[in-house]
Simulated scan of single mutants.
Amino acid sequence: MKVIVAEHAGVCYGVERALRLAHEAAATGAAVHTLGPLIHNPQAVEELKTMGVEVADGVEDIASGTVVVRSHGVPPAVIARAEERGLRVVDATCPFVSTAQRHAADLAEHGYTVVIVGEADHPEVEGIVAHAGGEAIVVEDARSLPERLPSKRVGVVVQTTQTAQRLEDVVCALLPRTSELRVFNTICSATTKRQKAARELARTVDAMVVVGGHNSGNTTRLAEICREENPNVHHIETPEEIDPAWFDRARVVGVTAGASTPSDQIDRIVDAIERMGDA
């Protein structure tokens, strides 16, 4: 059985940067906390804990030391509270997320109704909403748009891990309802490359395995995209989740991974599948 890893898979620049900043903070010997999980990868978060990097639900739970802002970003008020408490703040917000935050803030400042294409309960989106002054409309797709918009001047930004198709659908639905429409495509290039490579690979293999946190939005979307091309798709975090029955009569298995999945986790999955093929 042959195993092929997608051309673009695994950790992106934003995640690598966040992990590096957390490791550097831990190396100082000071108490280090992240505001929520640094990235949506439970295994990586557990590894950080072994280095002394703990997860805090909020700034109020941190007495002293360093606070690392997660890659998904946080509302501006959270950073302000951390600084007021005398905490050292290390901002590990992904640069692509920071760009979405800035565009949302600028649109709100200039009087646009801000529409964010994304998941309302996702921490990245919650942070973008806060940068827009808390008044943004969040929609997962065009069908989620409200019947009435507050104004005909609308600005659009998008969660960095969304699909281009969802953004396009929302924009097309807004065009006839607006007099002025500004659109910022804030989907990160790493997401686009991973989605394209996953789709292409899923078309050519007998089974597809998607590696990454079950709580990871971008990994979940990779699985959704693969299922559009192949019915035999499985989203897992660890080798222990693999069922050999998935590969019955499979000659070629494809593997891809979300942008928060380190390469060593991908390697372990590939090794496990290859051993099954040799058995």
Results as ranks from 00 to 15, higher is better:
Gly133Asn: 10
Ala223Phe: 01
Glu229Asp: 10
Ile242Ala: 01
Pro76Thr: 07
Ala198Arg: 03
Pro76Cys: 02
Glu224Phe: 04
Ala9Arg: 00
Glu84Thr: 14
Ile242Lys: 04
Thr93Ser: 06
Asp248Pro: 00
Val252Asn: 03
Asn185Leu: 09
Gln265Ser: 11
Ala63Tyr: 01
Val15Glu: 10
Pro244Thr: 11
Glu229Arg: 09
Asn218Pro: 13
His235Phe: 08
Ile39Thr: 05
His235Ser: 07
Pro42Asn: 12
Val253Arg: 07
Gly254Ile: 00
Lys2Leu: 13
Glu168Trp: 02
Ala173His: 06
Trp246Ser: 13
Thr191Cys: 00
Gly52Ser: 08
Gly277Val: 02
Glu46Asn: 12
His23Gly: 09
Val114Lys: 10
Leu222Thr: 03
Arg275Ala: 15
Leu175Ser: 12
Glu124Ile: 01
Asp91Ala: 05
Ser216Asn: 08
Val114Glu: 04
Pro123Thr: 14
Ala272Asn: 06
Phe247Thr: 10
Leu149Ser: 15
Ile225Lys: 06
Gly213Met: 07
Gly118Val: 12
Ala9Met: 08
Glu47Asp: 15
Val90Cys: 07
Glu7His: 03
Thr66Lys: 02
His122Pro: 13
Glu140Lys: 13
Glu228Arg: 15
Asp91Gln: 05
Pro123Met: 12
Gly52Trp: 02
Ile62His: 00
Leu201Cys: 09
Glu140His: 15
Gly254Pro: 12
Gly118His: 11
Gly217Asp: 14
Ile62Leu: 09
Val67Met: 07
Arg70Val: 06
Met51Pro: 01
Ala120Gln: 14
Ala132Met: 11
Val114Pro: 03
Arg251Trp: 01
Glu119Val: 14
Pro231Gly: 09
Ala130Asn: 09
His131Phe: 14
